[in-house]
Amino acid sequence: MLTARDLRVEFGLPGGRTARAVDGVDLDVAPGEIVALAGESGCGKTTLARTLLGLEPATGGRIAFGGTPLGRSGKALKAYRRQVQLVLQDPSGALNPRHTVYEAVAEGLRIHGITDDEPGRVADALARAGLRPPERFFLAYPHELSGGQRQRVVIAGALVLEPSILIADEPVASLDASVRGEILSLLLRLKEDAGLGALVITHDLGLAWSIADRIAIMYLGRIVEQGPVEQVLTAPRHPYTRALVSVLPDSPVPEPIVLAGELPDASRIPGGCRFRPRCQEVASGSALPVLGRCEGEDPGVLGPDGGSHEAACHLVHARMAA
């Protein structure tokens, strides 16, 4: 199981300010489940993913895989990377244009010194990623493939190491609508047949609905609501999630909610509740009973999701308590 506790990632900006791109995140991803991470552009999803992969140093908190903390040493990191693999958004960029499909998929094996039956393993990974017959793709270059085929090659390159967890950053956002479904169903099939776990990053709640078991909604570096995907999307609690869900077709939220203003800069996170400047409950006066806490008290970090539906909001807490 991949676990993150109180994870923080800060970037120093020119002028001495710091951007808190990830600002206290607890997250678990277990094999055999798909967790969606959703939120608007710039909320820190990619930074979180890169940090979970050890591509970005965390400035605080802990990451562990199977109880072993993610070390900074080359050897520990390398062992970790066999277990946790990455799938990027744009398969055209994610593949080296001068490497054949075979080279791209075999690279992971070579890095990790797995030398027995390389062609067999490559063929198997390609087949599992849905490229059949695999041998026909061995000598193809990325530019000779369609977008969907390329993304399958990227996935095969991850699968060949037999990882437990995939981290996929918007895996279908750059693909044609017609092949999105195919790639998503591939992820589902890998989960069901091979027990693969996945963290799928998206800003598309419909996509999260169709593939995820659990969902985490991220706002400005924090997870503000989490739980089983049906519960979160059919009965959203946090005002931010309600606003996101309100614009979906057949939304449980009766009126579309248009949020005021822009996502604030990660270097200027508001005090108290970070969502307050845009919160529709504050604007409408519904949050009046808890307004003091909205302004003065951070609703805090949601603990690891134990399958329960939770939101980081004073108003939600007050209503639940009532």
Binding site: E182, L186, G206, W209, L248, P249, D250
Partner: peptide
Amino acid sequence: MTDSPTPEGGAAPLH
């Protein structure tokens, strides 16, 4: 891409 079933399960499929 011969045998991918369409993703099942959802009131709000996006594709």
